[in-house]
Structure formats: C-alpha cells, structure tokens
Design a binder for these strands. Sequence first.
DNA 1: ACAGGCATGTAAATAGTTACATGATTCG
DNA 2: CGAATCATGTAACTATTTACATGCCTGT
Lengths: 181, 181
Amino acid sequence: MELSSTAYVILGFVRGEPRSGYEIKAAVDNSTRFFWAASYGQIYPELKRLAGVGLVEPIDASTGDRKRTRYAITADGEAELKDWLRRPPETTEMREEGLLKLFFSGALKPAEAVETLRSMRRMRLDLVERLRAMELHKEVIEDPYPPMVLRMGIEFNEWFADWCERMESELLAPATEKGSS
Amino acid sequence: MELSSTAYVILGFVRGEPRSGYEIKAAVDNSTRFFWAASYGQIYPELKRLAGVGLVEPIDASTGDRKRTRYAITADGEAELKDWLRRPPETTEMREEGLLKLFFSGALKPAEAVETLRSMRRMRLDLVERLRAMELHKEVIEDPYPPMVLRMGIEFNEWFADWCERMESELLAPATEKGSS
DNA sequence: ACAGGCATGTAAATAGTTACATGATTCG
DNA sequence: CGAATCATGTAACTATTTACATGCCTGT
C-alpha cells in the first residue's frame, strides 16, 4: 500500500504508545522537525483516514470535559509501517535559500556575499543549539536510533557552519593568483 | 516587493544573458537543482507574471518556424534581484526519507536499519558523482560563486555518505557497554 | 479574571509535481 | 522515416502552510 509520507510519521509515532494529534505534533517538533515536518492540517485529517482503513484505532482519553482522542497502532498498521521501513528511501530534498543567494552573488560586491555566508552560519549555529537542547531532554534511552538521527542533525549543522566560515575566509583572502608561488 | 522564490531563480538566471523558459529549466537542472528545483509548471507562468510587472522583458528569438521567447532582465528586475540578495536568507529545509526511516528503525532488527544506511550512502555517492560531472562541464569561470556552491554539494554529500558509513560500523560493532574498560 | 498552554479541527491559500498536448528541428 | 530533443504551455493533482475558530484547564 502507498500512503502519504505524513501517514508513516504518524504510524511511527503511535507505535509503542498511543498518542493524540496534538502529541504527535509535539513529538515531531521535538525530534524529526529538522528533516521532516508535519502540521496540524496534515496530521488531523490523516489520523482520521488511517483510522478509517484500520491502521490505527482511536482510544478515548478524555479527562472530564477536556476531550482527547489518542490513537493506537493496529496489527495492520504495524505491518504497514515495517513494510515501509524496509523499502529503500526515495525522497531526499534540500531547499536552501542561502545557497541560492550565494549562487547569484556575482551580482553583488564580495563583501555582500560574505554577509550571506554570515547569516547562514548564524542560522546553523542557532539550530545546533536548539538540537543540543533537545539532546539533553531525553535521559533514559532504549532505542538508539532517535539519538543517532539527532546527532546527525547536530554534526551536519556544525559541518555546514564550518563550511560557511571557510568560504568566508576564502572570499576575504588576498586573491592569490593561480601560478603565483 | 515580495515575489515567489521561483521568481528570484528566474531573475538570477536571466541576469547576464537573456534566457527562455526551456533554457532556465535546463540551467536550474544543471546547477541549483540539488538545493533548489523548479518545474515548467512554475517557470512559464512566473515568466509571464514577471514580464507583466516589468521585471523581465520578452525578446523574440524564434528561428524560422521554431518559436522561442527569451527574457532579459530589466533595470527594475536587476534592482529587485539585488534587493533580495541583500536580505538575509530565511527558508532552509531538508526532507530526508532515509533519516525518517532510520529514526523509526527500532521497529526492525538492527540488520535492517543497516540496509537503510546503505541505501542512503549509495544515494549520496551517486549524487556526488553527478555533481562532479557537472563540475567538469564548466571550464571558463569568471564568477566564483556557482562553483563554490557546487563544491558545497559535493562536500556535503561526501560528508553524509561518510556519516552513513560510520553509523553502519557503530551498529555492527560488538556492543561495547558503557563502563567496560 | 486573564494568560497561556492543551486540544481538535478546518478553510483557504500557496507551492510544487506530473502528465499531457502541441508542434518544430536535428540526426542517424 | 523515426527517435530524441527543442520549445511552450496548461490542467489536475497532491502537499503543505497559515490562520482562524472553538472551548477546556491551570496557575497567578
């Protein structure tokens, strides 16, 4: 079966423990957000769809007048999730406005391109800090994969920040002509 | 003025030399594609819009019965492009199905997670090769930024492939317990 | 009482891809 | 001639974000 990508995020997060739409959104924002986001506008309709085809099932978790529906994964849902996990990943995308600006920076003076690199670097370092903060949140860890992925986020962003710094020096370096020894 | 992101890609590519929609698409596919894509469905309507507001202007470049319209940037278009280039970049996104699968791999046996890492690595190495091929295409270079961005693509993908390899070893390593010396 | 977070949802807009239709030209 | 590529375009679809509406609960 071919489900939407949001469907698999949901299946992944309700496996193990039942979660509500709100809790799934919070979990996404706290973990996969930096490489896979999801909004309420995707989560809530998709939860209903998945319940409709029996891959998750609603559990009433209201407390008093506060309504809340958690969804638990079904056996079919778990099978579907594993099936998807075993297929080789396909989509891989990157959208970096900073790189696009840098790419076209021939229209500007070098000092201005350096500004773009500095903004990019700052953004990456901020993200590293946010990811590090997430890392501290979780103490008890049984499953090695979420922290592994989180570390990827940290290391990649550090690498990227470093690349920006290197390019900045390169642009500022006294233009060494090729052939000059 | 706030234009669509596609608009700036177009302005960037028609600066310097007039280009047709077809040529812009080809240029994108050959350079910015790995971090900023654009399809015909975006390019052609956007070209008309930009011509409508006077940021580019059409030049008939038909040869015989073969119709072709190239677009040249106007003074307003150039000003708009520079203005955008000077604003700090904002959007930065990554969508990595592989990382998502890895994240949820607790549902599988470790050997299966390793398979995901191998697929990811293979994809990254393939991309490195495609990017290196692009690098060779251009000989004469006046503008340092496009090759700089291209090198970023190559180095990032190499870094990522390497990360996959490291994680694979980590998963396959005889689980060294913390505290064992 | 009020702010802020919990909780569920939807409407509308925007973005982006895919697939198709049309027709010319070039090369083997 | 037929295939590939040049060239322009659009319709339909899917994905995704944003902003809003509604109402409860907790702490100050």
